[in-house]
Every structure is written in C-alpha cells, then in structure tokens.
Amino acid sequence: MRRFLLALLCLFPLATQAAGPNGVLETGQVLRGRFVQQRHLKGFSAPLRSEGRFVLAPGKGLIWRAETPFAVTTVITAAGLVQNVGETETIRLPSARLPFLARLYDMLGGALAGDWRALAGDFEVTRSGDDEAWRVVLSPRRRDDAGIPFRSIIAKGARYVETVDIAKADGDSEDLAFLDQALSAGPLSADEARALGTLAK
C-alpha cells in the first residue's frame, strides 16, 4: 500500500513543471533533460543518489531512466506505472487499481493546460518570485491525509523547473535537480514511443 501512496509523489515534478509561468506544455511538444535525485534516509550513511535522463510528453506520459548507479527505467502514463531493471519488469501498477493515480493524472492534465483548480482542491499552492526566478510551495490541505505522505514540496525554477525538494512526514527527504532541459516539437523516438507503449492496455 505504501508503495501505492508513494507512487503519488511520482507525478509531482510534472505538476510543478507546469507551475512555472512559462512552463505550460502543449500536446506534441516533448521536454527532455537530465536529473539528479538524492534521497536522504535516516539510518543510512549517505544519501541514495541516482542520475539519469527523463522524457516528458504531454498527453502521452513520462519516461524516467536512471543510469547510475543502476539502469532503472520507470514509465508513467494514464494507464499506470511500470518499472524495469534491464529487461526485468520489477513493478507494474495499473491505474485502474489506483484510483488516485488516475485522479492525479487528471489534475496533471489540468495543470499542464494551465488549469490549477484541480490541484488547488487538495493542495495549498503558494507562488512567489517572478518569471526569472519563481518558487512554488505545495502543502497538503489536510495534514492527516494518508494518501499524501509528505509535509511539503518546494519547486524552484525559471523557464523550467530546476529543483524540487520534498519533505516527508517521517523526517526523510528527497531532492531533485533538473539539468540540460530542452523543449522540442519533434516526435518521440521509436525507443521512447515503445517505452510509453509498454503500458498500453
């Protein structure tokens, strides 16, 4: 169950992506870039750090490909989430089993189109700064909502989202940095299209 709840978090970079004033993506556009993810866990000597590349295609989904320390590929679409290590599928979560995943996908769709109402229903959204350096803080409206196990998400960026910091209720935290982002209007590569297709029903 916990895994399901955490899957919820997966979608937030997408939402915050759209939080940038200039960041509303249009269908047909593809955002590609690199990421650095660090998880700070209590009882672990060092943060779990992974790096890799991502591909975000509005209306189609997200490919999250960690390259170091392991090649782990996660694909999220409206149909659900699937994770592969090499050729081995390790996790598959169809969204029919996760009503909130579908709900989140709806919110995400709204946010990408510049519509904040869906997101604002569940989160307090505080925006500050200007187009050159903005900051968005998301905090759950209900502290006791078991479906949203974090205290806050802080996203910062300019044209694109640049960093995301997530503080979890149990004291652990995660931070992400997005680098080398580039927006293109071109179609997905065959490889990318295939990856997004693995979740087709």
């Binding site: 916990r2 955490l6 993810q37 960690a66």
Partner: peptide, 29 residues
C-alpha cells in the same frame, strides 16, 4: 537484491526508508 536496489534508487524511491532498514531485500511488500 537488484529489485530492492531499483526501488531504493528508482523514480522517487518507491520504497520507504524505515522498511529498507528492517527489510533490506524488500521481501515484505
């Protein structure tokens, strides 16, 4: 072991830290 690592390092860490400490191979989920 690889599956546990992929969950620890993968997309936003699908595994919870407390669980990893007690069940490093993530056999309970």
């Amino acid at each position: 072991a690889l599956r546990a690592l992929s969950q620890a390092y993968g997309f936003f860490g699908l595994a919870d830290a407390q669980l990893l400490r007690n069940d490093p191979f993530l056999l309970m989920p």
